[in-house]
Design a protein around this nucleic acid. Sequence first.
DNA 1: AGCGCTTTCGCAACCGGTTCCAGCACCACG
DNA 2: CGTGGTGCTGGAACCGGTTGCGAAAGCGCT
Lengths: 342, 342
Amino acid sequence: MSSLQEVARRAGVSKATASRALSGAAHVSPAARERVATAASELGYVVSSTASSLVTGRTKNVGVITPFINRWFFAEVLEGIEGALIRAGYDLTLFRLPSEPEQRSRLFHYFLVRKRVDAIVCLGVALTPAEVELIHTLRRPAVGIGGAIPGLPTMSIDDVEATRLATRHLIGLGHRRIVHVGGDLGEQMDFEVHARRLAGFRSAMEEAGLDCEGAFRATTFSVPGGYESALALLADPAIRPTAIVAGCDEIAIGVITAARELGILVPSELSVVGIDDHPYAPMFGLTTVRQVPGEQGEKAAEMVVRALADATDPLEPVASEIPIRLVVRRSTTAPPGVQSVR
Amino acid sequence: MSSLQEVARRAGVSKATASRALSGAAHVSPAARERVATAASELGYVVSSTASSLVTGRTKNVGVITPFINRWFFAEVLEGIEGALIRAGYDLTLFRLPSEPEQRSRLFHYFLVRKRVDAIVCLGVALTPAEVELIHTLRRPAVGIGGAIPGLPTMSIDDVEATRLATRHLIGLGHRRIVHVGGDLGEQMDFEVHARRLAGFRSAMEEAGLDCEGAFRATTFSVPGGYESALALLADPAIRPTAIVAGCDEIAIGVITAARELGILVPSELSVVGIDDHPYAPMFGLTTVRQVPGEQGEKAAEMVVRALADATDPLEPVASEIPIRLVVRRSTTAPPGVQSVR
DNA sequence: AGCGCTTTCGCAACCGGTTCCAGCACCACG
DNA sequence: CGTGGTGCTGGAACCGGTTGCGAAAGCGCT
């Protein structure tokens, strides 16, 4: 528990020189630098981060705000962020976004405003204009993940394009009766992912001249959600679609499970496409639109780190879109009675 | 961005009084307290946590070390910890445990030793005696989750008892040919959960006079792991067991999926028990041994917070075991040809 | 009214670094 | 040999709070 003072004394130099020697770059003679280094290691000296950040104003700490931790996408992004931050020498302080507005504003003002974090990563959180404003006046680098935030750089996939890709794939195979089982528009997260994925589905359907009437089923973004929804949807052969575009892979897996339970063969009687390329997708042979959340987290973290390192160049408030691509597996084929095109 | 100095000036008192007034308890007249409070709120004053912790030595920050973020158990515990910490006014700094020993020791010495965190929660990390020693000499409260750590208080379930419960349930139903599909002993985590769950299985089998020879299949702790393993295990009717004890619910779900794919009826031809009571368990009608990871995290966090609040009473280094219980659903019944006992 | 006690308040010394600025030694050059 | 410059170094002033200690003020008591 030794202080810089003691290191300096042991090395026979002043606190100032010791500080310069340890922080690397400065005008310090090689001899002095050497003596300080050995003194420090002999004493097991570690700089006090609080003292250091009090004077520099930098905490070497990045705050991450997210509504969920225990969901695949979020946990995966978090891992990506964590890795990139540690690599750059930053700690990660985790905040779960409170749902009550009052708590939320307290989080922003109390925890983020004051010297606790150097920068902010907002994961799956659509900031209000006032919050963006606050971040700007504090001159803290910030980046969003999961959707565009006006005034802030963001990383996300193009959700509209994702379902469009999936839907076009099915249409291309010859499907006409397609249903989208997606997230409930009412209980969606801050970002309008659910609405955007529905929009992509609609766009592809309309582009092919297909009717979207009744072609959307809302459910929760989970395996049981897809399962329940599919049980209801597939029970009646009269209205049964030949293909389903799921809002995410977990829903898709629920759908496949329900289909199997009802004795409906996938893909010969029912094609299913998901979005995500979840680790479980290969096992179900799920055709899906691939995104890599960990990569998004990593890129976002690297952005703030870069901005922190080079204060001269503030982050451009642009919405970057991570490329996605369709991964075709065994869960999709031509509809019954239609010759496979390929 | 106002300082205490300015608040004091505006309230017409000294820095000292202002500090005392804001921190609540002290000998400050109601009038002065009031004036300081309004001055602070008018200026939007927020105390600088770095300055404050420099002098007090407390950071109001708890470090959590974990090897994984994106696994059900870990993410769930993390949520529990986060909630409890925020409620107590603490921040949570997240560290993923590096696998390289050198990085690991750097994490302990550099990040944890020095004023960055007041306390430590080790999630799924078995500390070495040296690490425990270090924590003790630094007098930092610490608690482990996921298994017992000598010298430290820990929260976990009794893993041996968990599989024993599950196995006894099957034996009670009349099963004799039971296989345990569990975690690979080689690639297990720091704690010997896999080995302990296997031990519980063995103990129940032996207690009933059943042979354990070849009754264990190692796989990864995931749905695909259980799926692959079950495909291989169930393919040959000659060796097919009548029941499977899965190392966790995800494995169990993989097993059920594989069984369905092979046309094996669950539970009439194959009973399956899991451990966890994963959110997906009800959908698969999975009989399982219930644990609530979020609760474990919450309790652990509350323990360190309590220790932090009351320094006089250091944490007893005892291993607390969270109660577990069997939740019977539809995936288990008497084996084929045996009359149901119940 | 005088005394002692309690409460309230301000001064100043910290906490442990970083960094500005001035001093100093030493070198090269004219 | 004097002078200007360069490279190291140390003193000291911060950063923004907390807290021990003594002074001052307020109070009840004899």
